[in-house]
């Protein structure tokens, strides 16, 4: 038996353009949701942001150029820490070491080149992350967590987004 075709017609080209029209409808702005969400910024914020950021890049504890004298200071502190374990008369020699260190500090040429330091150290000579030295315990905890997060993120950065949320879309 021959199948009956419904006696309806659609305009020519109707189905070819249907998907595009549907997408347009789906992308339409809602008539209920406001187009402006009401957020504002202080006047001139974007004009000054770049300069503001530049000021923070080399200082502010986020990124600090690790200067040669800091290495010298670290080396000095390391020396002082070693002394009690290497001598039978720690107090006397500690004083001696202090005076020698002070003398060395006054007279030595501490203008090391960065590559000299880098060759004798495993530290990255260019940058060291230093946060506020007066950290409270909570802040320190936050900092460590944040840095751990950052390390994780740096591994994931090329591909992944960190979302705690497993809910279905």
């Amino acid at each position: 038996m021959k199948k009956k075709v419904p006696n309806f017609k659609a305009p020519e080209g109707y189905f070819e353009g249907f998907m595009d029209r549907l997408k347009d409808r789906m992308d339409e702005k809602s008539s209920i949701i406001p187009e402006d969400d009401g957020f504002g910024v202080p006047e001139g914020y974007f004009e000054s942001f770049g300069d503001h950021l530049q000021e923070k890049l080399p200082q502010q504890g986020r990124l600090i150029q690790f200067k040669p004298w800091m290495y010298a200071a670290a080396a000095g502190i390391a020396l002082l820490l070693l002394i009690p374990f290497t001598n039978n008369e720690p107090e006397q020699n500690f004083e001696l070491a202090m005076s020698e260190l002070e003398e060395y500090w006054e007279e030595a040429d501490l203008e090391f080149a960065a590559f000299e330091i880098s060759e004798s150290s495993e530290w990255n000579p260019e940058t060291l992350i230093v946060e506020n030295p007066d950290l409270e315990t909570d802040e320190l905890q936050d900092y460590l967590e944040q840095e751990l997060d950052l390390e994780d993120q740096e591994h994931l950065m090329e591909e992944d987004l960190i979302l705690d949320y497993d809910e279905a879309l």
Binding site: D36, D37, G38, G40, P42
Partner: peptide
């Protein structure tokens, strides 16, 4: 002070 929205925008948030 940097949120200039009215009631509907607050409701949106």
């Amino acid at each position: 002070v940097y949120f200039e929205g009215d009631e509907i925008q607050l409701k949106l948030q």
